[in-house]
Design a protein around this nucleic acid. Structure first.
Lengths: 197, 197
DNA sequence: GCTAAATTGGACTGGTAAGTCCAGAAAGGT
DNA sequence: ACCTTTCTGGACTTACCAGTCCAATTTAGC
């Protein structure tokens, strides 16, 4: 991108990304125009294109990265320390609460569907997020396995995949039907099965 | 909507919906314009607005309904007869194959994210799809339970929720990362756990 | 201070795409 | 046959929005 960024420049860039993310969270990607972002962040058209020469797509990608970080952040500190069943439960509650509050929009999913999921940049962001997420879950499972709480026959990375898929699908169902029951069922059933193994 | 629809009119309307669905499947919602639909279906602007007076949003909703039907249809005949473990396996394979082929786009998800998931119409379509889908899965589980293949302690509708969530999330992950591993893990783990119960 | 680079403002352009309108063709009913 | 309703064609309007441009201003390094 650009190596030459003043402290002021970096701050402006950051302000643009965060403002865009907020705008998108409130209004949705489709209804968010560069002009909205400009107005909200108190910037001008030329600044937007100064920091994101490739235009809207590049900005959306930056927003996606920002949101990916936010998703993981919202699960801390529980996600990083899934060492006990209690910790798993707290994590589960945090996830459910986060997505319930967030309500109608999953900003990341929204951004992704606009950017075009198949563009290399977008896939890279998704893939990295999924990998990090899976790694933390798998680590938690391995930890319990080492403590004898989870059966040795369980493949931690496969179980983590299934669990994360359930979570994601639960969120999709929450977004599209308005009910969090499926998300809760997915998480609870997955944890129960881990426990019974 | 409109009570007065000639046979010819109904056919045209249908042609528009199907053409729009195809166009969206190929190009994505965002890049599909009414003019594309018009060209593809050999219709005129006035026809589009004659059959869908509320414009693009109404058309997209009709496409969503059409795609919802398609999603369920693609899983038949297996979905309707989940009576044996073999049937479950066939269903699993069908689902994985369907979404793997479909590749980059989940037409329904795409359409939904454009329509605005929270509009009452869109939620109704999603909710109905989810309910029908869950009902079939739960019926399959109950069937196995009656045959003593699944433990009596399993709550069929909760297990179906968790399973469907895993499926949906697996699809999301397939779309965003390009790998079907998570979808397969979600389905396999869910079925295994049912089997072990 | 001075110069060069980074930053900013905002008017302007160009293309695009949703939606309107009206006139004409085809059905449908009686 | 006649009249009403449905259906169709396509030009036109309107609005918006991404992206461009250039001039002005600030900042950084020396």
């Amino acid at each position: 991108m650009t190596q030459t960024l003043t402290a002021k420049g970096a701050a402006t860039r950051q302000r643009i990304v965060e403002g865009a993310a907020e705008e998108i969270r409130e209004r949705g990607v489709f209804d968010t125009t560069l002009d909205d972002v400009r107005a909200r962040t108190g910037t001008s058209k030329s600044q937007l294109f100064h920091y994101f020469p490739d235009g809207k797509e590049q900005l959306l990608l930056a927003v996606a990265e920002f949101e990916a970080e936010r998703v993981l952040g919202s699960q801390q500190p529980h996600l990083a320390a899934l060492n006990t069943w209690e910790a798993w439960q707290s994590w589960r509650d945090t996830v459910v609460a986060h997505y319930t509050e967030q309500g109608q929009f999953c900003p990341l999913n929204a951004v992704m569907s606009q950017v075009g999921r198949n563009t290399p940049g977008a896939q890279a962001v998704s893939t990295r997020l999924v990998e990090r997420w899976l790694a933390e879950l798998a680590a938690g499972i391995r930890h319990l396995q080492a403590a004898g709480e989870v059966g040795a026959s369980v493949d931690p990375s496969r179980a983590a995949s299934a669990l994360l898929a359930g979570l994601q699908g639960g969120v999709v169902m929450l977004l599209s039907t308005g009910s969090s029951a499926h998300l809760e069922a997915a998480l609870d059933v997955a944890i129960e099965n881990l426990r019974r193994s």
